[in-house]
Nucleic acid binder design. Structure first.
Lengths: 146, 146
DNA sequence: GCTTGACCTCAACTTAGCTTGAGGTTGCAG
DNA sequence: CTGCAACCTCAAGCTAAGTTGAGGTCAAGC
């Protein structure tokens, strides 16, 4: 017998550590696809384990599900992605990580000279008002560090 | 006339770039305190501008409001915090940033050797299953990269 | 001394990312 | 061929972090 190509939702859940309900949710959101048995049960590809793992890692990096969906959309639908497919997506990921590290490093540098010196309350503070446009229009705390 | 010690909610909002509704919300959550006029309007300390700025910066770093509240709780209530107070909190902050950078750096390193090589779907993958305890109890995708 | 913009409360709504529960069906092991 | 764990759908609920709106009050400038 050939190695089973399809796995149940429960198997996908236990292999990735996410709840069955979360997997259904991801599918609903378009991050996963599945086939159905004649009895209407989902069947996933083994390679979806990797796909879910990727979702988890990307979430860790702070990506929203919608952004993750965009990344995953570059993978071939329906067939098992090749290592090369994953490598490409992985490069994007590394770039995201790089820029997050850069941002954090810069923030840390500013923090040293800013909260430390007590200038945090001044409008000219670089850390929270980098472009001198506070009190701008629009709701939400969007004026900071963008 | 002495410089005004107290500012209105609108002033605090415009000086920090956050919405008035958000400031009320922060107060409700215990991140800010205010006095009231005889007519029941809020009056904040000027130093609350700094406090709100801190909230915004901390949010940027990914802290939840509840965590930020914990940080802020180490500041003196009711009186204007000294530069030294802020320096202390700023050190904590820097430590948090440091550990986030470390985590990202490690994740990047693993990503190189993991998604890149295609092992992401294997249970032994370090990246998504560092301690070999997948399928653990409890809801949510908590088994990954903790 | 009035007008008007800024302020007040309270309740309901929003988005993201899920979980929980009710009520019903499937599929595999014995 | 039966029992029961695992699956199904759909609706409702939850937390975080706010926003929006209704209905009403305050205070400061003319």
């Amino acid at each position: 017998m050939t190695a089973e190509t399809f796995i149940t939702i429960g198997k996908l859940a236990s292999r990735t550590g996410v709840a069955v309900s979360a997997i259904r949710f991801y599918e609903e959101k378009g991050l996963l696809q599945s086939l159905r048995t004649s009895g209407n049960q989902r069947r996933f590809l083994r390679s979806d384990i990797r796909r879910v793992s990727f979702i988890l890692i990307a979430q860790r990096l702070g990506l929203a599900l919608s952004e993750i969906e965009a990344e995953l959309a570059t993978l071939p639908e329906g067939r098992t992605p090749s290592p090369r497919d994953w490598q490409k997506i992985s490069r994007n990921m590394r770039d995201q990580i790089d820029s997050r590290i850069t941002l954090l490093t810069r923030t840390r540098a500013k923090l040293e000279g800013c909260i430390g010196c007590g200038c945090l309350s001044l409008q000219k503070c670089q850390l929270y008002n980098p472009n001198d446009k506070l009190g701008a229009a629009g709701p939400g705390p969007r004026a900071v560090l963008d």
